[in-house]
Each structure stands twice: as C-alpha cells, then as structure tokens.
Amino acid sequence: MSKHVRRQLHLDPTLCDAHGFCAELLPDLIDLDEWGYPVFIAGGLVTDIPEGSAGEAKRAVAACPVGALRLTKHA
C-alpha cells in the first residue's frame, strides 16, 4: 500500500444514535459530547485517519450499529 493514500472517516450525523463505540475504538480522534454523540477532535464531519489507525477505523465502521460511519481512500 502506498503511503500517499489518504484515508478519511465520514460521519452521517442524521444516522448516528450515540452508541459511542467509535470513540472507544479511536480515542485519539473521537471524543463524545455531553449527550454521548461523537465529536471529531479535528472538527467537522470528516476526519483524516493516520496510517497506524486504519485497522481501528475499519473496526469502528463495522462496530457502528446504525451504519453512520464510512471510510474513504483517496490516492
């Protein structure tokens, strides 16, 4: 895999139900707000995934019970 690949995690806020698994798996990237909803620490609804966290990000996508998370890869 080339190191120029940019992985991003996308959150659909209209689907998210505050189950919080994503923040457990990616604590460096995701906080939970006072109502239990994920906050991307870098802001917004799309966040860059560092190389070392790609596995956890995939697991977070699979763990989200409502399919609110999506991963994209751009060269």
């Binding site: 806020p13 209209t14 998210c16 505050a18 707000d33 109502w35 239990g36 909803y37």
Partner: peptide, 9 residues
C-alpha cells in the same frame, strides 16, 4: 430531530 447536537444542543 435527526442529529444529536441539534436535537439536544
């Protein structure tokens, strides 16, 4: 009422 920050915030 779809998004947490809107619906609770």
């Amino acid at each position: 009422g779809q998004c947490g920050p809107c619906r609770f915030g």
